[in-house]
Design a binder for these strands. Structure first.
Lengths: 214, 214
DNA sequence: CTCCCGTCCGACCGGTCGGTCGGTCCGAAA
DNA sequence: TTTCGGACCGACCGACCGGTCGGACGGGAG
């Protein structure tokens, strides 16, 4: 078996496969890998379980495909923000705005992203394509910070720690779901709350990262 | 409330019950509620599955007991930090230091805490005692921030958003596990990395929250 | 000694898990 | 008209799930 199994690129009838991914995304976000059976996905999509195994060779591959699609969306958004930015502060703001845009566009994404970080049977080959995309996203953010610090626009700070902080501030907040809503007393995903979170994050990091002689 | 079912306070032989909680804690942290069977817990502890059901009436109650114990530990730590603090900045630093101390003392706690936020079949009565403890922890942090802002020691900022940010900066970082380690190229839970994270978080939030005329 | 109660065990229950298999249907190619 | 392959289905498999049950063991009280 020399050839890679290239499971992803069959380009089947877009409708069913995409519906499966959408459904599985929200179910996995809520209940995790082990918490969602193929029967539940199939029933929720409205097809038979066999149809799922026709489109995805195993449960693990479905999980991986859901994650990869999600990460690719982030990558595209951040790449666009990166390209349009004309200085480090604008780039930082663009990262936050577009990352949060990507998160709120589909409420499953924040919990899904969090799960991907610790709900992983490592060395699982199926997950590694998605892993690589996620690495690329993080590397892009790190590079943006690095560049801003090198040019003096941003204060010198440990880049990796700052990346972790940025993810924590954005993803974590929108992953808290019902718990966060009862903490705030307002729906996390309303337009007003989204704007408030963006403003808070941008304000917070600009204060924390602005050059001392600003 | 007349007769609470008081499942927790049977005060059985501390050894087995505590070993069950320890084992379940690390397993739940890695694989989530649905990902850990009672057989797996029993085998890992070294007792029979029936012994588990002798100490905990159901899987859900075991899950809840693990979480409640974890949150109580946080509550105790933060309460101590709160009591010893003499001004708002010291209180903030104390919160961060002791929260991270609690996180790193047992690597299962960060992922466990994250899971508790979105891996919840809401209205599950078994979880509500643990929920209440977690609410208390968050309320304590919020009160500390509020007080510092009222006294002018801290800049006025949205309290709930700041709480979310603090949790994100601390818990999220230590929940990234193996993924974070390959991002940093160093073990997350080494003494040096723990110190670095604490310093980063404290530096970050003090810059972001210090009063403008500081 | 007997009795009892907390601790723990092996065997078992109905149900669900991921995954397989044989087969049907249907539109495009020949 | 026949053929063929992708999309999809119902039935089924062995393994495993959470939970129950009757009983074994042991130490302290009477």
């Amino acid at each position: 078996m020399a050839g890679e199994p290239d499971v992803e690129e069959v380009e089947a009838s877009p409708s069913t496969r995409e519906k499966i991914l959408d459904t599985a995304e929200s179910l996995y976000a809520r209940f995790g890998f082990a918490g969602v059976g193929m029967r539940a996905v199939a029933e929720s999509v409205g097809v038979s379980k066999s149809a799922l195994f026709h489109h995805f060779p195993s449960k693990r591959e479905l999980w991986a495909a859901v994650h990869e699609r999600c990460f690719l969306e982030f990558d595209a958004r951040l790449e666009a923000a990166d390209a349009h930015a004309r200085d480090a502060h604008e780039r930082l703001r663009g990262f936050v705005e577009s990352a949060i845009d990507a998160l709120v566009e589909n409420p499953a994404r924040a919990p899904l992203l969090l799960r991907s970080l610790f709900e992983v049977d490592n060395e699982e080959p199926a997950d590694q394509a998605a892993r690589a995309v996620l690495q690329r996203v993080l590397a892009r953010v790190a590079a943006g910070l690095e560049q801003g610090m090198a040019s003096g626009e941003l204060r010198r700070a440990p880049v990796q720690h700052t990346v972790q902080t940025l993810i924590g501030m954005t993803v974590f907040h929108f992953a808290t779901g019902e718990f966060g809503e009862e903490l705030f007393g307002a729906p996390l995903y309303s337009a007003a709350e989204i704007r408030a979170r963006k403003d808070h994050v941008i304000d917070f990091i600009e204060r924390a990262l602005r050059a001392s002689n600003d």
